[in-house]
């Protein structure tokens, strides 16, 4: 499998703030890749490095087998980008902006453009200064999606869209994937990521903390275990990789890492299990674990 994006040990500082602190990111060709992280984690910086707008202080970035900095113009014919905060030329209409961006990228599929305008319910005759945030985002989306490109770089593209339009967006992205396009989707909307992405990368403070399919991520994270036992359990303290352990008499509530499960179950069954409930983390919990520094350190998923 070839890589559409391959970033290695990327470092980038803006004055005293370190935006990327040795980031690794790889996106396979043809996949929809979720790019997650709390605000200020370095997602937009990464995208801007991939667009050749920023240089790296050290490390490397390869995009579609080219150097995003040196080969910017050639690479940009093969990709389309939707910024997180879309600002447009106030005295142009939405339709004019879509055409202009498409033409400068090297061509626009007129039929697809009309379809997308219909799907996103966007009036192209309005001056962009009168558009709401959501409508400006639609302009950028239509301009990107109507281009014949291999790679879509989307920076929180649905942040201003209503739920109906978000649904439309999902449908369109599924279509794009079936056409063999690669999508890097930075997002905060977990339902969207779960529905669309083949693989996700979670970054925090400029480094990659997790990457893989959602099933793999679930496996790596904490499972919540509640058990009613016949007697008070013996030796739970010795089990590695447990957090939020609460023992109330014969009742146990604990979060366990996957590799601790066997040992935990052995100790619990030693005390006689009456009822046991194991719940894998919800997606929200999964991300909160990765977003929140303290949880991460407690659980041993991150070096302190």
């Amino acid at each position: 499998m070839t890589l559409a994006i391959d970033v290695r040990q990327a470092r980038k500082s803006f004055g005293a703030t370190q935006a990327l602190a040795g980031l690794d990111l790889s996106v396979n060709t043809g996949e929809v890749h979720g790019f997650l992280g709390p605000n200020g984690a370095g997602k937009s910086t990464t995208l801007r490095v991939l667009l050749g707008l920023l240089t790296l202080d050290s490390g490397s970035a390869i995009l579609l087998d080219g150097d995003p900095w040196r080969d910017a113009v050639a690479l940009h014919r093969r990709l389309a980008y939707v910024p997180g905060d879309v600002t447009l030329w106030p005295n142009l209409t939405g339709g004019e902006v879509i055409d202009l961006l498409g033409r400068m990228r090297g061509g626009l599929d007129a039929k697809r453009r009309a379809e997308l305008l219909e799907l996103f319910d966007l009036d192209p005759k309005k001056k962009t200064r009168t558009y709401s945030k959501g409508n400006r985002q639609k302009v950028a989306l239509v301009a990107a999606l109507a281009s014949n490109v291999e790679l879509l770089l989307l920076d929180e593209p649905t942040a201003g869209l209503d739920p109906l339009m978000e649904e439309t967006f999902r449908t369109v992205i599924v279509e794009e994937r079936s056409r063999g396009r690669t999508v890097l989707l930075s997002s905060h909307i977990l339902g969207e990521v779960e529905a669309l992405c083949d693989r996700v990368s979670i970054i925090r403070e400029g480094v990659l903390v997790e990457s893989g399919s959602l099933a793999e991520l679930r496996h790596l994270s904490l499972t919540h275990v509640r058990a009613d036992l016949a007697a008070a359990p013996q030796g739970l303290e010795q089990v590695q990789g447990l957090t939020n352990l609460v023992v109330t008499g014969s009742h146990v509530s604990v979060d366990a890492r996957a590799e601790s499960m066997a040992e935990l179950l052995r100790v619990l069954s030693g005390a006689g299990v009456r009822t046991i409930e194991c719940r894998p983390p919800t997606l929200e919990e999964l991300f909160l674990q990765h977003y929140d520094t303290t949880t991460l350190r407690d659980s041993g998923l991150m070096d302190s």
């Binding site: 030329w89 142009l92 339709g95 879509i98 202009l100 033409r103 400068m104 192209p124 001056k127 200064r129």
Partner: peptide, 19 residues
């Protein structure tokens, strides 16, 4: 109220210079 403008860009609006 603002008036509606063009739904598509003129043929000439295709370069940074035109913009």
């Amino acid at each position: 109220q603002p008036r509606a403008g063009r739904a598509t860009a003129a043929r000439s609006l295709r370069s940074p210079l035109a913009l």
